[in-house]
Nucleic acid binder design. Structure first.
Length: 447
DNA sequence: CGACGGGACGC
DNA sequence: CGACGGGACGC
């Protein structure tokens, strides 16, 4: 209550987040005593003892605002349970609930010790740990991976032991990591015994042993259901799903009047082909602008036996791997009797495309960016990546959501120029590509 | 017409 | 149990 700079008093109490303490203390404690006790932990922007409106007596509650969350957290960690003045009860110290929040639960350490970060896809959990250990001892790190391929999604969690460590990481790590506090995993608030005194949440279990492949769900079958809003002919659907060998059945569903319902049922002779077709065609735009939805449907086969299920999912996982990493990486461990998948002719264009080239590492510095206009509608990301990577050094394809434009990030200017020269004005899968010209193509990006 | 992002964990 | 004030930027 003292000098909260006037503007901050109502709006910036939570700025930055988690920089304000809620202190439960003796009714006899004064603002000055609080300030003195807490000021060693950082810059105090204000101390406010809540008092009864009429009697003006302290209600034994106070708020202490720091300029940084790490300072508030450190103060909480150090002061919780301490006796401030001889003969008074020990204080309880929490991060204050944000003013806009309606809930009245204490903010638990659980919610303050885990951060969520964006990292290069090349990062291992070891890399992640090494990067973030400078802010405090890490309980564990996890990288979010594709369940089937094990490929990193470029996102990770880092759990510290103390809130102040997580806060320091968020405040001081490189901005490109976009570190924020992670939302608690389960909404079910762990009913940790939080009885008075200095008892805080104790994290000791869980070394972080995560399984990559989900063997439990029985979601894979040889049958697919395709849904579309655009009217497609039987022949078109057949062509689409003929991208892999083994199609046994393909039929557009019709109602009693022979009208199409926008669904087609497709069955393959083997699970792998179904998995591949599902992965490649689900979300595919055909014709451009019309997203197909493709999902597994029950094929009536018995998947209840654990062995059979394992086998099926193993095959599915291998297929996924092939889909994502290309045929070269799928040479290993091909199950017997499993038909080879032919590459999908999914790109039709008037350009003579050079062979595929590897993408530049995701954390590469962008030297050039192409601005691309799509007409009539944007092509799917995987198609764009396939086309635009062929000139080398492509880092990333970015589509502007809800618009018909996108950006192609390149690590090398010459490659970008080559791509522009080759692709400007060309037709890919029925749609036009128009590249912007002039200055707009020469922005330098900050990574 | 067509201009600047992205983010979530096995129950 | 223990949760949110007093006073008034500067145009």
């Amino acid at each position: 209550m003292e000098e909260f700079p006037s503007k901050q008093s109502t709006e910036n109490l939570d700025d930055p987040p988690n920089s304000r303490l809620f202190v439960v203390t003796s009714r006899s404690i004064t603002e000055e005593e609080l300030r003195e006790s807490f000021s060693v932990f950082g810059d105090i922007q204000g101390v406010w003892v809540v008092k009864d409106k009429q009697t003006k007596e302290s209600k034994g509650i106070a708020y202490v605002k720091f300029s940084k969350s790490s300072q508030a957290c450190l103060a909480m960690e150090e002061m919780h349970g301490k006796v401030l003045v001889e003969g008074t009860k020990p204080v309880k110290v929490f991060i204050a609930q944000s003013r806009s929040s309606t809930r009245h639960r204490d903010v638990e350490d659980e919610e303050l010790t885990r951060i969520f970060v964006m990292i290069p896809k090349t990062f291992s959990e070891e890399d992640l740990k090494n990067t973030f250990k400078e802010y405090g001892e890490i309980e564990y790190c996890v990288i979010i991976k594709n369940k089937f391929t094990g490929e990193s999604k470029g996102l990770g969690y880092v759990r510290y032991y103390k809130p102040s460590q997580a806060a320091l990481a968020i405040e001081n790590c490189d901005k490109t990591y976009r570190a924020i506090l992670a939302e608690p995993r389960s909404k079910a608030a762990s009913t940790e015994d939080y009885a008075g005194g200095a008892a805080r949440v104790d994290y000791s279990a869980d070394p972080g042993n995560y399984q990559v492949i989900d063997y439990r769900s029985g979601e894979f079958t040889r049958c697919l259901m395709m849904s579309t809003r655009a009217a497609l002919t039987q022949e078109q659907i057949f062509s689409l799903f003929d991208i892999v060998p083994g199609m046994e059945y393909c039929e557009l569903q019709r109602d009693a009047y022979g009208m199409t319902k926008g669904h087609a049922l497709i069955r393959y002779s083997n699970l792998g082909s179904a998995v591949y077709a599902k992965e490649k065609l689900n979300g595919f735009e055909y014709p451009p602008g019309n997203r197909l939805a493709v999902n597994f449907v029950d094929d009536g086969e018995d998947r209840s036996s654990p062995v059979g299920r394992m086998a099926m999912q193993f095959v599915a996982a291998q297929m996924m791997n092939a889909v994502w990493n290309g045929p070269s990486s799928s040479q290993v461990m091909k199950p017997p009797g499993f038909s080879t998948v032919s590459p999908m002719p999914r790109i039709q264009t008037d350009v003579s495309l050079p062979p595929l080239k590897k993408l530049a590492p995701p954390d590469s510095k962008a030297k050039e960016r192409l601005f691309v206009v799509f007409s009539p509608s944007p092509l799917p990301l995987d198609v764009l990546e396939d086309v635009f990577c062929r000139y080398g050094s492509l880092i990333e394809v970015h589509l502007v959501p809800g618009r018909k434009v996108g950006y192609m990030k390149y690590a090398d200017k010459q490659c970008a120029d080559d791509a522009m020269a080759a692709l400007h004005g060309r037709i890919v899968n029925g749609g036009h590509l128009t590249k912007g010209s002039g200055d707009c193509c020469h922005d330098t990006m900050t990574p």
